[in-house]
Design a protein around this nucleic acid. Structure first.
Ligand SMILES: [Zn+2]
Ligand SMILES: [Zn+2]
Length: 665
DNA sequence: AGCACGCCGACT
DNA sequence: GTCGGCGTGCTC
């Protein structure tokens, strides 16, 4: 190797866990800095890459190396702090660096398009707030203020209406006065124009949003505004954690328990966990806010890693709702609704109240059954039942794209005695329309809100009480606060009680408490009713007391006995293919080699079939790795990826890693 | 991943 | 004969 020649190490958007060495471009240029976007020849194609380093030497000889074809921008696109963050993230998740580097970027940037020019920078114009903070809010704000310029995570625990948002606004104001940027991460569902408006009212045009529903051009401009510092306050969903901040001084993760912060395919990162990492690298505070914190977060607060701030009061004077259950054992149900529940609904409607029925299942019925031989409509590509959709007159799989017409005759016994069994949102809508023909009803699920703008429209109507009766799934439980809501009914609470997934109970408790938080108006306490066949179940008893900290504490104790997260760390190696043999063999090979390694402090469990063995025609398996400490877990993952990258079998199997998995599916 | 190459069975 | 599916190998 000729002395003095510089070799650039370039990250490319390919699933390979290494950087690629390139010679400088033909036309002599000064040293290209880390973060520079370049075009490089790669095999027969030309790819966009980011320079992550340079060196005097390479493992490749000079004539094996190709030269950078083109430098895309006059200055580096990725700030140094973003480059280091990307490196740490890639290492944490054992994911290819190049894919991590491009994961949050606008598509136009990824395709090598030139940067559009930005409109003139508008100075931030802060509108002072006239809202007086209560004592707890003042204490919390002071604590965050005192932590500026140092790494300090906070858990800000407070129910709906306790004034968390006002603290975010004030803390953001303080940071912005120091010329710092502020990132506010929110769940996918709650990034509405109203959310944005609330911040714009306070901070003017220096507020921008970043989410997947923006056009490619809008995303590129927003990305560059963040890099140039024109964006002071950024409200964004998951991928915003990878924005190119240069002056980031505060990160807020609102509703930090929300599962949409974890990407569920491809590069499976948690934006909440990476927010803590990014704050650490930058030495700035990070605030995790929730009424129902994730158990991981509570654990970190209790162990002293995070500072625990509590807002015990509802800042606006709304009373806690009353919470009762309806024992529906041996009761005749009409479309899943007991007579008592229908009576409560009627009562509230009569009193000019607003009612929300919560059921976590869309469609008409989850099962389509033959009464004479027990045949059930099954998806031919998945181990799942088909859902009966009345309006579309179809049987639809909720796990793949399979659809079929509704059988009029049983394929097994030719009987015509076929019936939908169980309830979904569509059925509740039908039953209630029949029962309350005069009342306007809105069904809010992903079927009813498929086209753009329809969710906003429905939420707006619901908010202003144009619709007295609401039926909804998860969607409705999270998004929005309805000021006129007086009754919330959980139609079926029993699904979460007996799940194989150890997190199901946590999720259900969070959901029920969040839903309950929606009930109650300014002058009148709300009512929450839970239909169940297990009224004596200890979890339901605790939920009824609405004491989340206490409930979480007892569930955490159970987790500690079983050495489950947050008392141990998990990782999953998933594999799937058209035949069951390949993925099982592959994982068995890895398991074998790991056993021989004899790494202390880890358990390797499996390979086992995934809870839904077959999905979209693929047979799925997983290998679970469990460890008390992170270090051995990392060793296992490093070793596993090195095998997988070399293995021939792995080429014929789709495999992926999931560090800190949320769902075992 | 994306692309090319080579091999083998099965169709106009 | 040649079209196309899959298995294999490689990308600085
Ligand atoms: Zn039958
Ligand atoms: Zn299916």
């Amino acid at each position: 190797m000729k002395a003095g020649t510089i070799i650039y190490q370039v990250a490319l958007n390919v699933p390979l866990r290494r950087l690629f060495d390139y010679l400088p471009p033909e036309n002599e240029t000064p040293l290209l800095a880390r973060g520079t976007r370049v075009l490089v020849p790669f095999g027969r194609q030309t790819l966009v890459g980011i320079i992550f380093g340079h060196s005097e030497k390479s493992a490749f000889s000079h004539d094996q190396l190709k030269a950078i074809r083109q430098v895309c921008d006059p200055a580096p696109l990725f700030p140094e702090s973003l480059c280091t963050f990307i490196e740490k993230t890639a290492a944490y998740y054992h994911h290819p660096l190049g894919e991590v580097a491009f994961s949050g970027t606008p598509s136009l940037l990824r395709e090598g398009k030139p940067c559009p020019s930005l409109p003139d920078d508008i100075a931030i114009s802060t509108q002072a707030s006239d809202i007086a903070l209560n004592e707890q809010q003042q204490f919390a704000l002071q604590a965050i203020h005192d932590a500026q310029h140092s790494f300090q995570p906070f858990l800000l625990e407070g129910v709906t209406g306790s004034g968390k948002t006002e603290i975010y606004l004030r803390a953001a104001q303080i940071a912005s006065q120091k010329n710092q940027q502020i990132l506010i991460l929110v769940p996918e569902i709650s990034l509405t124009p109203q959310t944005q408006q609330r911040f714009i009212e306070r901070f003017g045009q220096a507020v921008i949003c970043y989410h997947s529903r923006m056009t490619p051009k809008e995303r590129f401009i927003a990305w560059l505004k963040v890099k140039e510092g024109h964006a002071v306050i950024v409200i964004g969903t998951r991928s915003s954690i990878f924005l190119p901040f240069t002056q980031l001084g505060l990160i807020v993760v609102d509703e930090e328990h929300d599962s949409s912060f974890k990407q569920q395919e491809g590069f499976r990162y948690s934006a909440r966990d990476m927010a803590v990492l990014r704050a650490k690298l930058l030495s700035c505070p990070v605030v995790l806010g929730s009424a129902t914190p994730a158990f991981e977060t509570l654990y970190n607060a209790q162990s002293g890693k995070y500072q625990h701030l509590t807002l015990p009061l509802r800042a606006t004077k709304v009373q806690l709702p009353t919470m009762t259950h309806l024992d529906v054992r041996h009761k005749k149900l009409e479309g899943g609704l007991s007579a008592q529940l229908i009576q409560r609904i009627e009562q509230h409607l009569k009193n000019e109240g607003q009612v929300l029925l919560f059921i976590n299942r869309r469609g008409f019925a989850p099962t389509y059954l033959c009464y004479s031989c027990n045949w059930m409509a099954q998806c031919p590509r998945c181990d799942a039942r088909l859902t009966y959709h009345q309006r579309k007159a179809a049987l639809i799989c909720h796990h793949c794209t399979y659809q079929s017409s509704v059988n009029q005759q049983c394929p097994d016994c030719q009987s015509e005695d076929l019936h939908p069994v169980g309830q979904g949102t569509e059925q509740l809508e039908a039953v209630l329309t029949k029962r309350f023909p005069e009342i306007a009803i809105a069904r809010i699920d992903s079927d009813a809100t498929r086209k753009k703008g329809s969710l906003e429209e429905l939420l707006h109507k619901a908010h202003h009480k144009e619709v007295p009766l609401l039926i909804g799934t998860q969607m409705l439980a999270k998004g929005h606060h309805f000021p006129h809501l007086s009754l919330v009914a959980i139609v079926d609470a029993d699904g979460g009680l007996f799940s194989v997934d150890f997190r199901a109970v946590e999720r259900m408790a969070q959901l029920l408490i969040q839903v309950a938080g929606r009930a109650g108006r300014v002058h009148q306490a709300g009512e929450v009713v839970i239909q169940t066949c297990f009224p004596d179940h200890p979890l339901l008893k605790q939920i009824r007391s609405q004491n989340y900290p206490e409930l979480a504490q007892s569930l955490l104790t159970e987790r500690s006995h079983c050495q489950l997260p947050p008392f141990a760390h998990l990782a999953l190696i998933r594999a799937h293919a058209m035949t069951p043999q390949l993925p099982e063999q592959l994982l068995a090979q890895i398991q074998q080699s790991l056993v021989h390694l004899k790494i202390e402090g880890v358990q390797i469990l499996g390979p086992v079939p995934a809870p839904m063995h077959r999905r979209q025609g693929h047979y799925r398996y997983q290998l679970l790795i469990q460890a008390k400490e992170r270090k051995p877990l990392h060793q296992v993952l490093s070793y596993s990826t090195s095998i997988l990258e070399k293995s021939k079998l792995a080429k014929r199997v789709r495999w992926s890693l999931d560090v800190d998995p949320l769902e075992m599916f």
